[in-house]
Design a binder for these strands. Structure first.
Lengths: 332, 332
DNA sequence: CTGAAAGCGCTTACAG
DNA sequence: CTGAAAGCGCTTACAG
């Protein structure tokens, strides 16, 4: 195992000082072309690669962005992680990805680990309200999708997006609707529910009233399936004609429940999700859902990080409705 | 933004030398209890945290494991990543996750990035054959699920697992079978196909022969859907009574195609996957598949890394068949 | 424009 | 058992 070449080796080979080597590495203009060339030649000859650890120690800066998601096995966050990585790559940065398994403890741990490694910034899709971090952090932190502590948030305009679904279902004639909500202790859960409920109420004030029942759950498949099973066990004339869910995973779980109970979707029951994960267009029937602008969210989050501003403002990006086969006009 | 306390600060506060501080940090037995206590007190009082970068520079070692997967949006690898992280955590190690987007170039880039950061080991689920890495690497590399270069591989016994599916389908009476294979340029694709084909041939030799057609594709949803659409466009008496796929994603795509073509699964057509991703039990009908022992694979890969042995042998772990609703006896 | 030197925060022989 | 000192590989004032 050969020792890796260092700036010193390069300097010797090129017949200059290490300072000069460092300067051409940094791309400083102020190096005479003749020397610069000698250095670059030496670098090539030796196969020199800068030691990022030494550089980090010296400058206490790196080119890595820390990313924390609540659960990497959640397709939405997997997609998000991929998009963040692309956005970072475009700026020649690397991302370190950590999954908190929805555990605030793990989340805290990962934040510390990132801080310890002097990442240049952290993006976190929170699984908790976030602890009270010291106000004088050395690096910027951005909340993504789910707010972490009181750091600036880049997210879909959940309320707006959810209201789109309310419009859609109401427009199809549904008046008895069940809403499978996200965890009430998450901002995104509350926002989506609120956007959905408010719009439906507004609609009900000027038109036919809506019979809406809310069932809080978690964002995963299991939760959606369980809740739907309960909801759909009501007598046919009591049960909702449409179920809206706070996530695609819940909606897919609901699809599963409907199938088990031999309830035809969308003929007897409309089901809608939220997120537009890649699976949404593959389930049978294809899922009507709200599309979160994942790429845009990722771009903006990374941009905010580079803005360096510790006083960035929240950014909300509108979602859009994707009508597919799982919703249809009410038919009774 | 306050300066972080260093060993020097701790040493002063405790009235000892930095060497001593470093020794209690390392948990060395050879420090007098009295001093040790002073140091730990000082650490607590100052809220001292070791600078991992400095430590890494000095020792050229860290407690981070680099993990590279071909595609984090593939649920199987997302699950794998989560399992690796747990396994690493149990050993007080951190994992840096990178996704190569099935791009050998990106894969190479990530390997270098990890090497540059002196991770203590790399686990890679390859998206390419792997480049010719210098033989004298400073750290161990383990291939997971898909072999990378010629590094030791921890994987499911793909051939054995695939043969289970052959048994299952043959046992149900299917004699006209389509196999949606993985990319022929991947070892795992070849292995699964081979295990499946060989077993079916063996079965055909002693019993009724099987009419088997192979369709190579990628491992994703789209590929499965496209191929199935083609296969199922054959006349009913020519088309297969069962489709086996090399991945759950392909199988779910096939399910989608069957549904579009109004072919009832499993009454008219059996469909089976491979991986047992969490989604497999949620689609309609629930997917019969082969379960890869993800947790075990993750544990073994991490264990091998810690074995430190650069001469680790390949390890194969048996898969198991999970029969669910998407397969049924042939009925004609 | 370039070199000599200090220093980032640790760990670890080397003495004692 | 403990301290003083060297050194990991860089970057960056400071002179010149």
């Amino acid at each position: 195992m050969r020792r890796m070449p260092t700036v010193k080796d390069v300097a010797e080979q090129a017949g200059v000082s290490v300072g000069t080597v460092s300067r051409v590495l940094a791309g400083e203009a102020a190096v005479k072309p003749a020397l610069r060339e000698k250095v670059t030649d030496a670098i090539a000859a030796l196969g020199y690669r800068p030691n990022v650890t030494a550089r980090a120690l010296r400058t206490s800066k790196t080119d890595v962005i820390g990313l924390i998601v609540p659960d990497i096995t959640n397709p939405f966050f997997a997609q998000m992680a991929a998009s963040i990585e692309s956005a970072a790559m475009q700026r020649k940065h690397t991302v370190m990805l950590a999954s908190s398994h929805n555990d605030p403890e793990a989340e805290r741990h990962h934040i510390s680990a990132f801080l310890d490694r002097s990442v240049c910034g952290i993006i976190v899709a929170a699984s908790s309200q976030g602890p009270h971090l010291p106000g004088d952090l050395p690096i910027p932190i951005i909340s993504l999708d789910r707010r972490f502590a009181d750091f600036p948030l880049v997210s879909t305009n959940h309320a707006q997006a959810a209201s789109l679904m309310a419009d859609h279902l109401y427009g199809l004639g549904h008046r008895r609707i069940a809403y499978i909500a996200g965890p009430p202790d998450t901002e995104v859960g509350r926002l989506r529910q609120q956007g959905f409920v408010d719009r439906l109420r507004r609609l009900g004030e000027t038109g036919e009233a809506v019979d809406l029942t809310i069932y809080p759950g978690k964002f995963d498949y299991e939760s959606g399936e369980m809740i739907a099973r309960e909801v759909l066990s009501l007598a046919p004339d009591k049960r909702p004609t449409a179920i809206a869910a706070a996530s695609d995973q819940q909606a897919i779980g609901a699809l599963r429940a409907a199938s088990d109970l031999k309830i035809d979707v969308p003929r007897e029951l409309s089901i809608a999700g939220f997120d537009d994960i890649s699976l949404a267009k593959l389930v049978v029937p294809r899922l009507t859902t709200v599309c979160q602008p994942v790429e845009k969210l990722a771009m903006r989050a990374v941009a905010l990080l580079f803005g360096g501003s510790f006083t960035a403002k929240d950014e909300m990006i509108d979602g859009s409705l994707i009508a597919r086969g799982s919703t249809a006009p009410r038919c009774d």
